[in-house]
Write a protein that binds this DNA or RNA. Structure first.
Lengths: 250, 250
DNA sequence: CACAATTCAATCATTTTCTTTCAAATTCAT
DNA sequence: ATGAATTTGAAAGAAAATGATTGAATTGTG
């Protein structure tokens, strides 16, 4: 791959993710660590990004956001481990659905299975999927400006034409009584549709999502397997009564 | 192969791919590496592209700068005028379909109508449409790597749920007997579907497309109004017998 | 504080790409 | 045709990019 091409992709990734890890870039761009490091140095010299330990970040943020940024980094690491584990569930030849959103996005660099068919409603996933030469389908629909997700009837109708080996979703809240929830009803409807299109449904959620409830219900707990890094034994036990829950420890 | 011809092809490739490798060009144009390198140097001197290690990339030039270049950007200028005129056909409140491809892409900067709903199968149009705050819908489907167009049954099914006030298409060939044609059968099928979804169908085509025939038929001439800058009186007359044709002169 | 684990910068050998040069082939005007 | 100008392809050495390796620096953990 050409240097220019890599630089372009790195900057595009940064736009959507704010922070990228070197290892992610190594995977997505199939280049060596050395090359990626050189790329980041060059882009930093051109003032296109800021290098940080472990990767690079946008150099846009104000002082207030900096502290938030540190938390974000930590949270990202958690999410990253969850995503990495989830990616290992994908096997050669699978047809999978990848929900829009940053949580699921983090899976992509770790996908190593071959001969995949991926369907997604997340425009932000596209560059990475195509860079990995994965056979990618988009659902139709209305584009939600903020998150670049495809939603609405178009998305739901498109989805209903597919069946998946595995379905990976992100949500905002997980609650014993209220199940999975997310703020936007339109997005919830898409997720609710996807959840019925296969036997193996996985919801990825770091520990901050537990006991949270947001506006729109996606489904009941038992309709998906939860993949998380939550380790509080009480919480785990509580949810294990209702559904499968896989805890990523390492 | 003539130098001029190679230059034209190189620039066309660049338009769709953003970046091309020298080796690619060597194969496509069956010329030696030396010749390609010379071509790229010349085109760089003319400010048509930027050389990068391993190939060449598009330099993001603004429209104004383009028109400053005179005779040499003639083809681009032509396309631009056609696109500009086509954009004026769009009225406030319209629901329109924009086909994938560079010809139609050029319309977007000139769209000034308000309260639009745009449906497209071209991923490359998205950023510009969203930047203009246009209510944008994507059709679903399989992503064609090379052109970033959505194609296949998914795209066709998605499309069939809509009806449009105006439909704008690009094609590769226009011929009195064979109608509108384009190389990829999958893309042709999408265009053929779109053409039936409204009364006002416009095909944008600069003069190089006339009398050309490519692999896959999209539709008969009479199914769309041609917008062009072709000025040869005989050609115009010949086509006017079959369908509406609007000639952009200024 | 000390330990292990990452991450980092620097360096080197290898491969790829670039520039320059030159001779053969082609085009053009006499 | 003949010779001049242009275009082309090949070759050689220079430059750039790449991946691997090393030891130093940084981070997280007990």
């Amino acid at each position: 791959m050409l240097t220019e091409e890599r630089h372009r992709i790195i900057l595009e990734l940064l736009e959507t993710k704010k922070i990228v890890r070197i290892q992610e870039l190594v995977e997505v761009l199939s280049s060596s660590e050395s090359t990626i490091r050189r790329d980041l140095s060059q882009l930093e010299r051109k003032k296109k990004l800021k290098r940080v330990h472990g990767g690079a970040s946008l150099l846009n943020q104000k002082k207030e956001e900096l502290s938030i940024d540190e938390k974000l980094t930590k949270n990202l690491e958690e999410k990253d481990r969850i995503a990495k584990y989830a990616a290992t569930l994908i096997k050669d030849g699978d047809c999978i659905y990848l929900d829009a959103g940053t949580t699921i996005n983090q899976m992509i660099p770790y996908i190593s299975a071959h001969d995949l068919t991926v369907v997604t409603n997340g425009l932000t996933h596209l560059e990475q999927l195509l860079a990995k030469n994965i056979n990618t389908y988009l659902v139709g629909g209305c584009i939600k400006q903020k998150t670049r997700a495809l939603i609405g009837h178009g998305a739901i109708d498109s989805l209903n034409k597919y069946r998946f080996d595995k379905i990976f979703l992100g949500v905002n809240g997980i609650h014993v009584d209220y199940g999975y929830t997310t703020p936007d009803p339109e997005e919830a409807a898409v997720k609710a549709t996807a959840i019925n299109l296969g036997q193996n449904v996985f919801v990825l959620a770091d520990h901050t999502k537990f006991h949270e409830v947001t506006f729109s219900k996606v489904a009941d707990l038992e309709e998906a397997t939860i993949i998380t890094n939550e380790t509080d034994p009480e919480t785990i036990e509580e949810f294990r009564k209702k559904t499968n829950i896989e805890v990523v420890t390492e």
